[in-house]
Amino acid sequence: MRFTPFLFISPFFVLFIITGLFPILYTAWVSLHDWDLIRGQGDFVGLANFEFVLGTDSFYKALRNTFSIFILSSVPQVIAAILIAYVLDANLRAKTFWRMGVLVPFVVAPVAVSLIFAKIFADSSGIVNGALTAINLPAVGWHSDALASHVAIATMVNFRWTGYNALIFLAAMQAVPREIYEAAIIDGTGRMKRFWHVTVPMLRPTIVFVVITSTIGGLQIFDEPRMFDTGGQGGASRQWMTMTMYLYELGWGPQVAFGRASAVAWLLFLIILAFGILNFFITRRIANAGGPAKSSR
Rank of each mutant, 00 (worst) to 15 (best):
V45I: 14
I180G: 07
T244R: 11
F159P: 00
L270K: 01
I272G: 04
L92S: 12
V75R: 04
L167Y: 01
A261M: 02
L21W: 10
T206G: 05
F6V: 05
V104W: 11
F50C: 02
M173F: 05
L115I: 11
G232C: 09
A112Q: 01
A152V: 00
Y164T: 11
L267A: 04
H150V: 07
S296C: 01
I38T: 12
P292E: 13
S74A: 13
Q174C: 00
G259N: 03
I272L: 03
F258M: 12
M1Q: 08
N91T: 11
A118V: 00
S295E: 10
G40I: 03
Y181I: 06
I168D: 11
T19L: 15
F67Y: 06
I120G: 00
L103H: 04
A80R: 02
E182W: 04
I82P: 08
A166T: 06
P23Y: 12
T230K: 15
G55C: 05
A289V: 05
T133K: 14
F22K: 07
T206I: 10
M241E: 14
P177I: 09
F22I: 14
W35I: 12
V157I: 15
V102M: 08
L132R: 00
A265S: 15
I116S: 12
Q41S: 02
H33Y: 13
A166Y: 03
A81P: 10
Y181P: 07
L267K: 05
V30N: 02
L219Q: 00
F222Q: 08
W35D: 09
R260N: 12
L203M: 09
R99G: 13
L37Q: 07
V151K: 00
F59I: 05
T213G: 02
F13D: 11
P23R: 12
V211M: 13
S68Y: 04
A146S: 14
S214K: 13
L92G: 13
L203Q: 06
L25P: 04
F195I: 07
L15I: 12
V75M: 08
F121P: 00
G141T: 00
F269S: 12
A171E: 05
V45K: 02
M1A: 14
F121K: 00
